[in-house]
Structures are given as C-alpha cells and as structure tokens.
Amino acid sequence: MDEISVKNLEVFCHHGVYKEENVLGQKFLVDIISKVDTREAGKTDELALSVSYGDICRCVKKEMTKQNDKLLERVAERLAECILLQFPQINEVEIEVKKPWAPVLMHMDYASVKIKRSWHKVYIGVGSNLGEREEYMKLAKERVSGLPKTRNFKSAAIIETEPYGYTEQGKFLNTVYYIETLYTPEEFLDKLHQIENEANRKREIHWGPRTLDLDILLYDNLITEDEELTLPHPEMTKRLFVLEPLCMLYPRGIHPLERRRYADILEDLKGKEQ
C-alpha cells in the first residue's frame, strides 16, 4: 500500500497533566503516515482519487485544539480515529505525537507516543430460533449496521436451517454479516453482546434455543485462542448454516488455518452430509 506522509506538523494546544500546561499551552509536533492506494491518482493527476495532505493537516489541527487531554496516548487515539472516519480512502494510519517541551527537568529533544490504527474486516454469524425470529433478525441488522466506528455493512440472504448440536428445538433463521470496524475484537464482541442482551438472549443450554445469536466468525485473518474469543470461529467449517451465507459474501476467501477456500469447504461438507 502507498503512503502519504506529513512530518512535524506544528500545532499549538493545551494538553498535559499539569495545570500550567493546560493554561499556557505549548507546541506539539505530529507525524502522520496514511496508507492509501495512489495508483489511479498518479495515472490521472486527479486529486479526487487521492487524499489531500492539506485536508489531513487541517483535520489534525481541528481535532487537537477542540479539547484538552492529559495524555499523549489520548491525543494520538483521537487523531487516528478522526482521520480514518473522515477520509474513506485511508485504510491505515500511523500517528506520532511529539512533545518537545515535556516537563521532566532534563534535556531531551521530545517525548512522543506513536500508534498505528486501521480498518478491520469482520464476518459475523447471525441466528434466531426463539420467539419472533424475523423481528430479532431485523433488530440485529439494524443494530449491527448502525454501530459507530464501522462502515461498508453487507448482509447475506437469510436461510432457514435445522438446529445444530442440541436438536430438540425449533428451526433457525441464519445469515452472515460483513462489516469493517475500528474496534478491537474484544471491543466488537462486547458490542455484539449488548445487542444480544437487547434481544433478551439467555445462555442456559449449550447450542440451545436463543432469541438472537451473534458470533464473530472472522476478524481479518487473525488467529487467537482464549476463553472469551477464539478466531477463526472453531465451529464455522462444520456448519452449513454458516458456510452457505458466508459464501454468498466471501466465496473465494481462504480460511486462515485450513488454507482452503470457503466455497471448497462448503462443497466438501455438503458431500459428507448427503
């Protein structure tokens, strides 16, 4: 991915722990590295096909001066989020906020905080088989697509499926969502749990009936294993009701662990269940 860089942008503002810093203010220096595909802009010389570094600078200045923060970490986080939300062509940004006059009573060039933030691609399994199934699926779509710090929501078609695991229950409605987010996996999972709670989700029987079930299937190609969240979802390649709608959105995608396309995994699973 190409880069558009701004180095040592000077902004006078009032961030710091001490009262004097908040009252008197001081100069901060900011480095911004934005990951952007510049090929079409380079071929056509059209600004609309790239991102104006002048607009990035104005965005940074406005964000840095609109409020006072104690920590450089907070300043950098706000800047990264502001840039990614304001400039859709930017998929990743690296921010370094430098404080040349940090009050440490020793000589140094500056203190700084550097962070890197980006958009993440997430696939979510969705299911309901209890109560007003259609209404719960509608609620899920409205709430997930309306989450802040997200973009480019897509939904596969809804399918009706037989229960999996615990079979003494009604049929499910299932689908898969795609969305891009700035949330970490843990933050995004918490948002999904809040939506499930709004639908009065109860976790009483493993694989049992539920008003609404929202599972993170994939988060980029991240591979994790802990008690709260395992990625990719460990059961996804065994479930037709996940693979069928997933392949509507992402048929040529490759499973991070199995290194096989989802369309091929789906065909193999169909063959086994015939």
Rank of each mutant, 00 (worst) to 15 (best):
D109G: 14
K149G: 04
E142F: 10
L189E: 10
C247A: 12
K66F: 15
V122Q: 10
M108C: 12
E132G: 05
T175S: 10
S50W: 01
K149P: 02
T211Y: 05
L173N: 13
M137P: 06
L72C: 15
I124K: 05
L218P: 06
I32C: 12
L192G: 02
C247H: 04
M1F: 02
Q194S: 08
V17C: 02
N174L: 14
E92N: 00
T237A: 11
M236H: 03
T44M: 03
S155Q: 13
V122E: 01
E180F: 03
P245F: 15
D226T: 11
L217R: 05
L85I: 12
L266V: 01
S118Y: 10
E40Y: 01
E132M: 15
E273M: 13
Q26P: 07
K35E: 01
L139N: 10
I195T: 06
P88L: 03
L139Y: 15
L243P: 03
T161I: 11
H120E: 09
G131M: 15
K191L: 09
L229R: 08
L130N: 13
T161G: 12
P256G: 06
R58W: 00
V104T: 07
H206F: 06
E186W: 11
R261E: 12
D37L: 04
E267D: 08
E168T: 05
G54F: 14
L105R: 04
L71V: 12
V113S: 11
Q67E: 15
I254N: 09
M236F: 04
E134S: 07
V176L: 07
C57Y: 08
P209D: 10
K149I: 09
E96V: 10
E160I: 12
V122T: 06
P88F: 00
V6E: 02
E20W: 03
F153Y: 11
K116C: 08
E21I: 00
Y166L: 13
G271Y: 13
L147H: 11
L246T: 08
L84V: 05
K114M: 09
T237N: 07
M236E: 07
L49A: 01
A48H: 13
